[in-house]
């Protein structure tokens, strides 16, 4: 653990030297990969420890119980927001949650981390929005998915003017989903660090005033990961909820969905 912290600081100081005077500069490529590796190490370690406690009766190991709690939470998110057919999105949501939440924790403890870097967050947002598009195409067909962009069916005269506008607005909103998801995460995590640094100056170098923000930053870690997954689920539900009503896909879900 000591080694980890030391090397992290080494990496971070290298970062600072590299970045130079430019303030708004993220990690280097190797630095980001290092922090992603730390995050994945934590995630895989946790999962590997939790996996040893798996059985079909009762999970006695605390980490396994924690993982089960996480599973129940994500399942609730899926079923409540997307509907009964939302169970198949659990792996994606679970992966996203683990990556983002652990990244937040790494950023919180090591003072630099993957989610404090906009490039990582944009990657997460691209994954989320891309997955939503993929699932939309799989649920409605490629044409159905794009006709979904074009808004409601209108008379020809109106459709000529309004449908392209709606189409363009929808495309812009899909793009803005990326921007909003990534900027929100980046702003909250990175902004938290900035706030700590700024408030530490208040203590005159003697009292680390900003470090007392730790609890609220911990809360931010949880809430931001939650909001990311929540919005992802909402986007998924928006794209896939026509699946059960309008389009005749048969009941390949195996059960009837309640009314939306």
């Amino acid at each position: 653990m000591e080694f980890l912290v030391n090397s992290t600081w080494l990496m971070a100081s290298e970062e600072v030297a590299e970045a130079g005077a430019e303030a708004a500069h993220g990690l280097s490529f190797a630095g980001l990969m290092f922090y992603i590796a730390v995050t994945l190490l934590v995630v895989v370690g946790f999962l590997a420890v939790a996996k040893t406690g798996l059985n079909t009766r009762f999970f006695k190991k605390p980490t396994t119980q924690l993982l089960e709690q996480l599973y129940v939470f994500i399942e609730g998110l899926c079923v409540n927001i997307i509907g009964p057919h939302g169970r198949k999105y659990i792996p994606m949501l679970l992966t996203l949650w683990l990556m983002i939440f652990t990244g937040n924790l790494v950023a919180l403890i090591l003072h630099a981390g993957p989610t404090a870097d906009l490039s990582f967050n944009l990657a997460m947002a691209l994954i989320a929005v891309g997955y939503v598009q993929y699932e939309g195409m799989r649920a409605n067909g490629v044409l159905g998915h794009f006709s979904h962009f074009a808004g409601p069916r209108l008379p020809i005269a109106m459709a000529l003017i309004i449908t392209p506008m709606i189409f363009i607005i929808e495309i812009i909103s899909e793009t803005m989903k990326n921007v909003s998801l990534s900027l929100r995460l980046y702003g909250n995590i990175h902004g938290g660090h900035e706030a700590v640094v700024a408030m530490n100056k208040l203590g005159g170098g003697w009292v680390p005033v900003g470090d007392f923000l730790f609890p609220i930053k911990l809360l931010t870690c949880v809430v931001q990961a939650l909001i990311f997954c929540l919005l992802f689920a909402v986007y998924l539900s928006l794209v896939t909820h026509h699946h059960d009503e309008g389009h005749d896909h048969g009941n390949d879900e195996g059960h009837a969905a309640p009314a939306h």
Binding site: H25, L118, S119
Partner: peptide, 22 residues
């Protein structure tokens, strides 16, 4: 806005691999 496209693309790759492996 400290965005670097290379890092984003590499992260997407790492995420896709990790998604399947996890």
């Amino acid at each position: 806005i400290p965005l670097e496209i290379g890092k984003t693309i590499a992260t997407i790759g790492v995420f896709l691999i990790m998604f399947k492996i996890l």
